[in-house]
Write a protein that binds this DNA or RNA. Structure first.
Length: 147
DNA sequence: GCCAACGTTGGC
DNA sequence: GCCAACGTTGGC
């Protein structure tokens, strides 16, 4: 899962109440579908820092609540407001994730790209801007092994 | 339903 | 700040 550290980084997750936060504001159908349909409690998360000085994986989190409607989508005050989404017919979904640990150092995008066995990671595929992407267990093991 | 225009993402 | 890549919008 990608996040901009200037907006909400791994430290913000660690400092959140119960080290848990809801992943609101996702307004992309593919990412929504993954949160709504695929992600389960206990699923492990690589927490990626994007759009920053040192893009890369900063730590680990886990899913603690499965997909449920993103209430910011029907809040006119929210910058994520979508008039087509209502409590009765929600268009956007989110999950809750909880901090697991922060890596001692960021596993940089450069480093990930250089690893031959990570070539197939959606994160590293050219032009992929999805904020949520699947990771295989093998890929997970390699990434965690780089710390 | 096509597709040009536009907005956003995000690395560099 | 540039710009490639991609998703969305909306006219037709």
């Amino acid at each position: 899962m990608k996040s901009e550290p200037d907006v909400f980084g791994i430290d913000d997750l660690r400092n959140a109440p119960d080290k848990t936060e809801h992943w609101d504001g996702v307004r992309n159908y593919q990412a929504r579908n993954m949160m709504r349909d695929d992600m389960k409690v206990g699923d492990k998360v690589l927490f990626y820092h994007s759009n920053c000085k040192e893009p890369g994986i900063a730590g680990l989190a886990k899913v603690v609540r499965e997909g449920y409607p993103d209430h910011t989508s029907w809040d006119p005050e929210s910058k994520y407001y979508d008039p087509k989404s209502t409590p009765d017919n929600p268009r956007w979904f989110m999950v809750d994730i909880k901090f697991v640990r922060k890596f001692k150092r960021v596993i940089t995008l450069v480093e990930l790209k250089a690893h031959p066995l990570l070539e197939a990671m959606p994160l590293l595929r050219r032009g992929n801007r999805l904020s949520i992407m699947p990771v295989t267990q093998d890929q997970w093991n390699i990434v965690v092994g780089l710390t």
